[in-house]
């Protein structure tokens, strides 16, 4: 149990996917304009990443390893994740149109999100078992959400501030992201895995 908690904490804070591993930067910069959309994106990521881990783990150990095709991991994972996200979108559209509208464009966006692939590949690389890999994915996704929400809050405030002209827009956003990343370095050594 302690192991699992440490795994999650480690993925959220210490090895944050956005701020430490620099994965998933595209949505991090793209959908951090206001809190409601950032929340929607975070929720979508938590859902997709956790499910993707649950799908790819059996794929790796029961299909690819058995046929000695471990080197095709990347292609196979992309294929499965993309299919999975499309499936979820189709089902949601029919079953829960309100939720589908809420998540909107973010679901298909996540298909090509490197953080999703990164989480699944890393959990195989770390040799985690099925339960561990799910918790690891959950932690990574929560970490993504946390970073996204903090960053969005900061950008909302920057939007009403007066940065020097040369820094306005994306420039100040990138500087902020860098500082946030530096701040997260403070968590290094919190969890020993």
């Amino acid at each position: 149990m302690t192991e699992l908690v440490l795994l999650v904490v480690g993925a959220v804070l210490v090895n944050n996917f956005v701020l430490h591993r620099f994965l998933g930067i595209c949505p991090f910069l793209g959908v951090s304009r206001d809190i409601p959309t950032a929340l929607g994106m975070s929720a979508a990521v938590v859902f997709v990443v956790t499910c993707a881990a649950a799908v790819t783990w059996p794929l790796q150990y029961f299909v690819l390893e058995r046929f000695g095709a471990g080197y095709l991991q990347t292609i196979a994972f992309i294929l499965v994740i993309a299919t999975f996200v499309q499936l979820v979108e189709l089902v949601l559209k029919k079953a829960a149109p309100a939720l589908h509208r809420g998540l909107g464009i973010y679901l298909p966006l996540i298909t090509t999100n490197c953080a999703v692939l990164g989480v699944t590949v890393l959990s195989i690389k770390k040799g985690l078992n099925f339960v561990e890999s799910i918790f690891f994915a959950l932690g990574a996704a929560l970490g993504f959400g946390l970073a996204l929400l903090i960053f969005t809050g900061m950008r909302e405030r920057i939007a009403r501030a007066y940065p020097p002209r040369a820094f306005q827009g994306t420039a100040i956003a990138l500087v902020t992201a860098g500082l946030l990343s530096l701040a997260f370095m403070g968590f290094a050594g919190l969890v020993k895995l």
């Binding site: 299909v63 046929f67 095709a69 095709l72 292609i75 196979a76 294929l79 499965v80």
Partner: peptide, 10 residues
């Protein structure tokens, strides 16, 4: 063999 495997998966 692996081409077929991935093809089948697709």
């Amino acid at each position: 063999q692996h081409t077929i495997l991935i093809g089948m998966a697709g």
